[in-house]
Design a protein around this nucleic acid. Structure first.
Lengths: 233, 233
DNA sequence: CAGTCAGCTACACACTCGTGTAGTCCTTCC
DNA sequence: GGAAGGACTACACGAGTGTGTAGCTGACTG
């Protein structure tokens, strides 16, 4: 399924190498010479084909978006298996594209930021459409948090893989992670008592510092009780 | 509560500036000269106090860990409010430390990776301790996914803030995000039917490609049905 | 008062980066 | 056959980086 690298044009090889390196190392840390070496060409050729490093990034952005869209449409046209799980399984390149886009968010790519907003929009509409078992109170914040959390999984690919002892981009490790995330999304992490306690704590916080500029928690407590410490230190 | 910058020694000012810049821009993109300018000193003084850029990073790592641990112990000693939510609310600097550590994960800092592993360990033990309403089938993967997702929220600080139209490090935006994450963790995102359907899809995937190296999904589908597309494209 | 030493600065060096330019090779078309 | 043009390389340049070194200042110490 994966096309052989030797059959590709040099321009495509450069773009693919850049996409992979950008995803793995980030935009700043990736050098044009490194891209050229990975693609098996001279550094001058990178400039010849793409003009500048920024233009190379734009080409990668466009390619990642095009690829994701094309695969998505193809999957929709092909049948009912339009959910992203199956798509990513059938098209291994999807994960690289997603990881590239996730990394672009950290690097501050404008197009990735635009995509993030779009994903939040789509998720917000999906949350408001009533497909959820429970309608969230704040669909916008709900969507933003959900998208950011899922993206975090891709960005921390190396860390998660190391903690699991298996590459989450491989079939076995990926299935394992997928089931775990499914577990998180399926079962509530807090009992009703704990949730009520947490909500009360937020109410108290909001009442105490209604207009203060002091920061509070980005990480919600997961363990509700006294010694219940969340995953975040 | 926040100490005045002018009262700090130059070494402390350099460390604080480096921590903030590392958290905002990443390690590679931050220059020693930039740190020196932010601290109001010459670039040579940075080297005089810390020896090298890597040693400066180590000092920031140690400081972030020390600060987090000290605040945590103090909170535990002070009373029952040991959960991270309240701590971060009381100690605004906690969020910066967390954001720094989250960013360090992306930049590949060894000590941040060690901290990530420790957080996964703690979360795994917490998941196995039976405090959850439902015991996860794979506590290790469950914990890794949970920690990565929460960390993702901090790493995508800018993106989430933009999508919400409010800085999530400020009180109002942070409360809003906290409630949203609480919402995610409290209510299941999938109905039982959808969850069963997703599990069946994973079983089918696992049976079809038992030992293949082809990648599958890191993003689980959230919408289960035909046109149900998850937040991830 | 002289000595000392940490705090601090200014400056230079080697290196790597992105970029610019000239030139070679090879295919294509008249 | 020869001109033309794209694919591709080699090399040079300026800017910015981390790092090294010499020197200045002021407080403390005998």
């Amino acid at each position: 399924m994966e096309r052989a690298n030797e059959d590709l044009t040099a321009k495509a090889r450069i773009r693919d190498a850049a996409l992979r390196l950008f995803a793995e190392q980030g935009f700043e840390a990736t050098t044009i010479r490194g891209v050229a070496a990975a693609a098996g060409v001279s550094s001058g050729l990178v400039r010849h084909h793409f003009g500048s490093k920024e233009a190379l990034r734009d080409a990668c952005d466009a390619h990642a978006l095009d690829h994701a869209m094309a695969v998505k449409e193809e999957a929709i046209l092909a049948g009912g298996l339009a959910d992203s799980t199956f798509m990513a399984a059938v098209y291994p390149s999807m994960l690289l594209m997603q990881r590239y886009l996730a990394r672009s968010l950290v690097d501050g790519s404008p197009s990735a930021a635009a995509l993030f907003d779009r994903m939040v929009d789509v998720t917000e509409q999906w949350a408001q459409a009533g497909r959820l078992p429970t309608r969230p109170a704040d669909p916008r914040a709900f969507a933003a948090a959900l998208v950011a959390m899922q993206t975090g999984l891709l960005m921390l690919h190396d860390q998660v893989s190391r903690a699991l002892g298996a590459d989450i981009l491989d079939a076995s490790g990926n299935l394992r992670l997928g089931r775990a995330v499914l577990d998180i999304y399926t079962h509530p992490l807090l009992t009703e008592d704990q949730a009520a306690q947490a909500r009360a704590a937020y109410d108290q916080l909001q009442a105490r510092q209604p207009l203060s500029s002091a920061s509070s928690a980005a990480a919600p407590h997961v363990g509700g009780g006294r010694d219940g410490e969340g995953p975040r230190t």
